[in-house]
Simulated scan of single mutants.
Amino acid sequence: MVRTCPSCEERVATGDVYCERCGHRVAAGLAGPPAPPAVPAPRDAAAADRGAGTDQGESTTAGTEVHTGPMPAVDPCTWCGAAVSAGYCNECGMSQPGDRDHVEVRAETAAGVSDRGLRHHRNEDAMAVLTSDDPAPVVVAVVCDGVSTSPHPEEAAHVAAETGAAVLADGLAAGSGPREATEAALAQAASAVAELAETEQAAPACTYVSAVVPADGGAITVGWVGDSRAYWLAGSPSATPSAVLTRDDSWSEAMVAMRVMTPAEARASAYAHALTAWLGADNAAGASGHVATVTPAGPGALVLCTDGLWNYFPDPGALCAAAPGAAADPLGAAQAYVRRALDAGGRDNITVVVIAVPGPQDGPGDDVRGSGGNAG
């Protein structure tokens, strides 16, 4: 039986609580689609609408944030005039417009853009970009994607991005190594999101990807949970080839890794975007996440993004072609990526952070997969 929204008759997925088109509440429960027993119970992130944020840690400089979306709505409801609470109308259930529909962040050699897309009534992605000179010049960035089948996913993404970036910057300033700081940031972000839960069955959730990039070149450290990604984009023919630096915590990725399905078969499955790990009180087993360190040879750019972008441009080569020369103009590249995703359909929120990466001072580069593993 096909489920439809009672307000606008848009088709909705089994686990959706709110209509992705109009924001009307369509179900009282939070149950997602059943998962095959071979992998942890997934959270359906196929159509997640997602809040964008930035924060400032000690001894850091936060990116300059420019809001270009509408100002937040206040009572009464924009749609029917009734009272509003927690961003939704008490009578018609419609989501209220927010002030984070389009946000841009600039911070020296890095920039980010977050946009709600064309189908959703609010932006539930989040990003944070910080720079620090203590003890050495470095760029810290975090991108998060709220899970639409959880309550208040925008809060989860916003809290995770702010917490992760602040803990990363503070840890580096206190003398922690990038890997140690990344592990600590993942743990603190997971705890912060878990604390938002009223019960385990009503737990806000989000994905998470972070990066520590030395401003003078050298090893890049990335950490992640879920299916938000980090890409290395080569800036010259002599640089390390472009590659995906993360591996999705998703049902489709698990099926391919176990050789149960081919990549094409997994992508065609109804479970293709179901998450097997996320930040949230209902998935503590996946909260430790993963950390990888890479040292690319030659200049280029590091791109952190949500699936609102990579669904349209999943391959590194496609990202390179969508915004050539990203390292030379991070803000222009981030803006171009969002425009390309909107032109391709804009079915999801879109968030992308681009960080310019200079070539190493000396020595050959490592394989871009580098050294990785669980953070815990």
Rank of each mutant, 00 (worst) to 15 (best):
V303W: 05
G177Y: 07
N123S: 04
S269F: 02
A301L: 02
G372M: 07
A336N: 13
W278K: 02
G317V: 01
C22I: 01
P360M: 00
T109W: 11
H120E: 06
R116G: 00
A86L: 15
G146T: 05
A82K: 10
Q361V: 13
A284N: 02
D134M: 01
S228M: 05
S59P: 06
C5H: 03
A323N: 08
T351H: 10
A184F: 11
W224I: 10
R106I: 08
S150T: 11
H152V: 13
V212S: 00
A157L: 12
E58F: 13
V147T: 08
G15Y: 00
A169F: 09
A141F: 04
Q335P: 07
P97N: 06
T351R: 05
V294L: 14
N374F: 15
A38C: 12
Q361E: 12
A35H: 13
Y208Q: 00
D343Y: 11
A126N: 08
C144R: 02
Y208R: 01
R179G: 09
T163N: 05
N349C: 08
G325Y: 05
T207Q: 09
V139L: 09
A284T: 09
A334L: 08
D145Q: 07
R369L: 09
A277E: 00
V256Y: 09
C144W: 07
H120M: 09
G98P: 01
R229P: 04
R119H: 13
A161D: 12
A264W: 10
G23N: 02
P37I: 07
D249R: 12
A297W: 01
G81S: 12
E104C: 03
P70I: 14
R50P: 08
V354L: 04
A297P: 02
A86I: 10
Y231V: 05
L233M: 08
C320P: 02
G93I: 09
V167K: 03
D248S: 11
Y271T: 14
A160C: 10
G286E: 03
P314W: 11
E195G: 12
L30T: 13
D170P: 11
E124F: 07
V140S: 03
A375L: 04
H158Y: 15
A165N: 06
Y271H: 14
A322C: 12
S148R: 08
